[in-house]
C-alpha cells in the first residue's frame, strides 16, 4: 500500500487530491447539499414550489395519518424483500448453471441479460398485456385448452404487488447473474478440487465452499438491487399506475405524486427524508463493514 506514512504532503499527494476533488465536490453539492435542502423543505409549508414558512413536524404528522403512506410502506417491505431475495437467488442459480455448462454460455447469457438494456417505458406495455387476464397469459392458456387456468393477480388489490415483483425480477436477475458469474470465475480452483476429493456432495460444495467465497459479489449485488428497489418508479407507473385503487403505491410513487402532482411538496419531502433515513439505517452499517473488511 502507499500507506508509507509521510510527514509532509508530496507533490503526488497533491495531484491525487486534485483529481479526486471534482468528484467529491460534485457529490457534496448534488447529493448532500440537496439532501439537506430536502430535509429543510420537509419542515416547511411548501406546496407547488419550495417555500420557507416553517411548520415544524406538521408534515411528518400528516404523512403518518395517510392510509396511503402506510400502504406504500407495507408494499415497499414486501417488494424489497421479495425483489432482493428472489433476484439474488435467481441470479445465483443462473450463474451456477451457466458456469456448469460453459458451451451454452454464449447462447443463454445474452438472453438472460438483455432485459437490463431496455427501459420499462418500453417493456411496461408488454408486461401489462401479458399479465392482463383479458388478453394475456390467462386467455392464451384458456385458448390452449386449460380452461381452469386463472391468473388475475394484476387486477387484484391483494396480489397486484406481486406482479410488479415478477416483472422487476425479470429485468434485473440477468445482471445479477453476470456479477455472480464473475465472482464464481474468480474463486481459486484448488479449494473446489480439494473439497471434491474429500467427497463433498454438489450441494455441500456450493453451500459450504463456493457461496461463502462470493461475499464480495454479494456487496455489489446488494448495492445494485437496493438502489433499484428504492428507485423502482417506472415499473409501477408502467404496470399498474399504483392501482387497483391505491394498492400498489410504493414510496417512490408516493413521493413523486405528493411533490409534483398533488402540490404538497412538504409532505413529499417528508416522505423522502423518512425513506432516506430508513435506508441509511440499513445500508450504512453494511457499507462500513464491507469497506473495513476490504481494507484489512
Amino acid at each position: 500500500m502507499i500507506a508509507i506514512r509521510k510527514w509532509k504532503i508530496t507533490k503526488d499527494d497533491l495531484v491525487a487530491r486534485t483529481v479526486l476533488f471534482p468528484t467529491v465536490a460534485l457529490t457534496m453539492v448534488f447529493v448532500y447539499a440537496f439532501i439537506i435542502f430536502t430535509i429543510y423543505i420537509s419542515f416547511t409549508n411548501s406546496k407547488l414550489m419550495p417555500s420557507f414558512g416553517w411548520v415544524g413536524l406538521q408534515n411528518y404528522i400528516k404523512l403518518f395519518k395517510l392510509d396511503h403512506w402506510h400502504i406504500a410502506l407495507k408494499n415497499m417491505l414486501i417488494f424489497s424483500i421479495l425483489y432482493i431475495g428472489l433476484s439474488t437467488i435467481f441470479g445465483l442459480l443462473m450463474a451456477i448453471l451457466i458456469d456448469l455448462n460453459k458451451f451454452s454460455e454464449t447462447f443463454f447469457r445474452p438472453i438472460y441479460l438483455y432485459p437490463m438494456a431496455i427501459s420499462f417505458i418500453v417493456t411496461g406495455t408488454a408486461w401489462k398485456w401479458f399479465l392482463d387476464p383479458g388478453i394475456g397469459i390467462e386467455r392464451i392458456m384458456q385458448q390452449w385448452g386449460f380452461t381452469s387456468f386463472h391468473f388475475t393477480w394484476i387486477k387484484d388489490s391483494e396480489f397486484a404487488i406481486y406482479t410488479i415483483v415478477i416483472a422487476a425480477i425479470w429485468q434485473v436477475s440477468g445482471y445479477i447473474m453476470v456479477i455472480f458469474l464473475a465472482g464464481l470465475r474468480a474463486i481459486p480452483h484448488e479449494t473446489i478440487e480439494s473439497a471434491v476429493v474429500d467427497g463433498a456432495s454438489v450441494f455441500t460444495l456450493y453451500t459450504k465452499i463456493v457461496i461463502p467465497q462470493l461475499s464480495a459479489a454479494f456487496l455489489s449485488v446488494f448495492v445494485i438491487l437496493g438502489h433499484m428497489a428504492i428507485k423502482s418508479y417506472d415499473l409501477v407507473v408502467a404496470l399498474t399506475s399504483g392501482g387497483p385503487g391505491r394498492a400498489t403505491e410504493l414510496p417512490s410513487t408516493f413521493m413523486y405524486s405528493y411533490t409534483f402532482t398533488r402540490n404538497q411538496m412538504g409532505i413529499g419531502a417528508a416522505s423522502a427524508v423518512f425513506m432516506l433515513a430508513i435506508f441509511g439505517i440499513i445500508i450504512i452499517p453494511y457499507l462500513r463493514h464491507q469497506i473495513k473488511a476490504d481494507v484489512e
Binding site: 448534488f30 439532501i35 437496493g226 438502489h227 418508479y233 413521493m255 425513506m275 457499507l287
Partner: peptide, 10 residues
C-alpha cells in the same frame, strides 16, 4: 451512498 438518492427529490 450517493448512488441511492432517489432522483425525484433532486
Amino acid at each position: 451512498f450517493g448512488c441511492f438518492i432517489p432522483f425525484q427529490i433532486v
